[in-house]
Design a protein around this nucleic acid. Sequence first.
RNA 1: GCCCCCAUAGUCUAGCGGCCCAGGACGUCACCCUUUCAAGGUGAAGAUCGCGGGUUCGAAUCCCGCUGGGGGUACCA
Length: 507
Amino acid sequence: MPPAVRVRFAPSPTGLLHVGGGRTALFNWLLAHGQARRAGSDGAFILRIEDTDRARLVEGAEQGILDVLAWFGLTWDEGPDVGGPHAPYRQSERTALYREAAERLLASGDAYRCFCSPERLQAVREAQVARKEAPGYDRHCRGIERDASFARAQAGDPYVIRFAMPREGETVVHDALRGEIVYQNANLEDLVLLKTDGFPTYHLANVVDDHDMAVSHILRGEEWIPTAPLHLRLYAAFGWEAPSLAHLPLILAPGGGKLSKRHGSTSMEEFRAQGYLPEALMNYLALLGWSLDGETEIFSKADLLEKFTLERVSPSPATFDYAKLRWFNAHYINHIVALDDLVGRVAPFLADAGLVDRAAVADPSHPDRARARPAVALLKDRMETLAEAPDLLAPFLRDALESYDPALLVPKKGSSAETLAALEAVARMLPEVDLDDEAATEARFRALADELGLKAGTLFMPIRVAVTGRTQSPGLFETMRVVGAARCTRRLDAAIEALRALVPAPA
RNA sequence: GCCCCCAUAGUCUAGCGGCCCAGGACGUCACCCUUUCAAGGUGAAGAUCGCGGGUUCGAAUCCCGCUGGGGGUACCA
């Protein structure tokens, strides 16, 4: 059997999960559960929480990330909630490991204590910038004798542990998507491994953990490329084999630069709240950087597991296109998700708006589901997000119509008196009509239009407005069928009454 | 400033030396369908393949330079 492919997604619990992070998680998952398993090797997707920055930690963020990843449709084999052979999966619970690793490097001479204060560091940087030099640590403490260093530490001098980067030679990063990237060691920094508070930096923690957890492939964002050589040097210093690396292209904002609030939603949680379907979001995100053949656009989760290969991921950054995401979402709502399923997905939004009973959200057999179903069937083709459902469905699910301007009842080329007469005729005819028979209803109404000397559309529009309160709706006869005879009658009567007030009194 | 990455229509992309005076999708526009709005169908416009040099019989495809965009430059990840 080919060697196991073990990948990890390692979010920082500092807030909501960015869509870029969501895509990174997706590609990792697709590599392990898709490509690797297809090739007959074990593929494991590991979730690891990188909570070593105590200052930026946000309470509840970790759970939020787990929740949204599950909603997204990913499953992980090891993680903080499910455990696994390399537990714990939360870095704040693994600090002894990092301390130990740092001490090892200290002993071997690959690392040293740095007693410089943040103030001195800042001053050094400022002076360098003023002299137009590259800012960076000046290795001030690198020369301190081992005994002296130890003594100061014993005396309680606060310090960090820094990596003693080789001063000469070069480090070659093999990026699976870009080939070789060569760095001169001379301009790599002596990065901090262990902070004053005893927590590791990302650099130390990720190397120690990836090795400890037997991670075979690292798929992460492009913003990590510059630190890759540093990490490689760390693996070398420990005497460990480094995982293979691939840096995923950045997701850019429409105007260029980072995707931020200014452009719209940026987090997975927001897209969820706005009524995007996880499968639509997954489909869209998968295509942001990956393509099968340039032709196929629609991919289910199963399709992606079957088709995804890392080799077909592009190295060039992609702009996030909200309009295209909307198109995917609308497409899934209208053409892919089965009706009963869709009714269930729309239910929470309807419940929030008070259009269905809260109990209908969890209970597929709740009568409100059946009540909403025909309306959803009628409106789904104009629903781009689930959040639009309440507004679209309100005329069908509420008893009374929201108030509307009676002037809307009068067609552009008609008069209020003429419209009033037409609606009165419709109201008289209604009791004899079987709304469930759309074809028959249509035939009778068309005949009525003839009798009245009106064009069909000129008769239908006032009825539409009377029945829905709007000038836009699905086909009139399916609309009336779903609204039902009782409400149609009431709404028609209300419209007639409103219209009477508009008709000029006879002179 | 220094280091690094990227470069096909407004956007996502196909293309990995001849099948390409460049294919698909979103968006845009037009028409069809039609009782309105959508959805759907058909079609159109839109790319000197960022620019300039090479290599080659032949380059969007390979090489170099430039330009542009982006990332990094923290005791953040």
